[in-house]
């Protein structure tokens, strides 16, 4: 029963990515639960979404130390939610830095060793420039679909189910670019193996 935590910054699109992942799991016939963040917390704040599926899911929240996958949309946020990852968990990390206000203001330092910390904690780490790859696919805001493409190579959901879910969940004008971004992630994931 896989548990996935998606950590990022409000506006990066991880709520949509969580929906897409959940919709795919639903189409595979699983019981699925997600939790999302709306409202004030989204305004450029730290945003975490969770997706769980299996025969039967109880809590929509993943307990700390239980997640099989952490999708880090941003390095600091990856670090912040690392505690959810299990001892065997995989971190899929977008090598992207967005300075939070205390850093912009000069009151705090962006952790210089974020990559190393994630590497040393997760059992397996897949690092990529998802934002740049999404930009190449047509829109840097589709980075979430690149990360999901990588995740898909670790799961056993057929490609066409992902694509059906994409059409169902993503606004129609953004489907094409997200499909391309997803494929870029898949290609990266396969190379990684």
């Amino acid at each position: 029963m896989p548990d996935v935590v998606l950590a990022g910054v409000g506006g990066q699109g991880n709520v949509l990515s969580a929906r897409l992942l959940a919709e795919t799991a639903l189409r595979m016939g699983y019981d699925v639960k997600t939790s999302e963040v709306h409202g004030m917390a989204q305004r450029g704040g730290s945003v975490v979404c969770m997706v769980r599926w299996g025969e039967k899911v109880c809590s929509p929240l993943v307990p700390e130390g239980r997640a099989d996958f952490l999708l880090a949309f941003e390095l600091l946020e990856g670090m912040r939610y690392l505690r959810y990852l299990s001892g065997e968990g995989t971190a899929i990390v977008n090598l992207y830095r967005l300075d939070p206000l205390p850093v912009l203001r000069g009151d705090a330092e962006y952790p210089p060793n974020a990559r190393e910390v994630i590497r040393s904690y997760a059992a397996r780490v897949l690092e990529l420039e998802a934002r740049a790859m999404a930009a190449e696919a047509g829109n840097p805001r589709a980075a979430g679909s690149v990360l999901l493409g990588v995740l898909s190579t670790c799961l056993d959901f057929p490609d066409d189910v992902w694509r059906e879910a994409m059409v169902a969940v993503v606004p129609s004008k953004a489907v094409e670019v997200n499909l391309r971004a997803f494929s870029a992630g898949v290609a990266f994931g396969r190379r990684g193996d």
Binding site: G44, S46, G65
Partner: peptide, 23 residues
């Protein structure tokens, strides 16, 4: 059964916070 993580996660209190901000 408490989960068995692979070590100690980063100390939350020393990470810079990311409060929601005006756009």
């Amino acid at each position: 059964s408490p989960p068995a993580p692979r070590g100690t996660p980063p100390d939350q209190s020393v990470l810079p916070s990311r409060p929601p901000v005006m756009c």
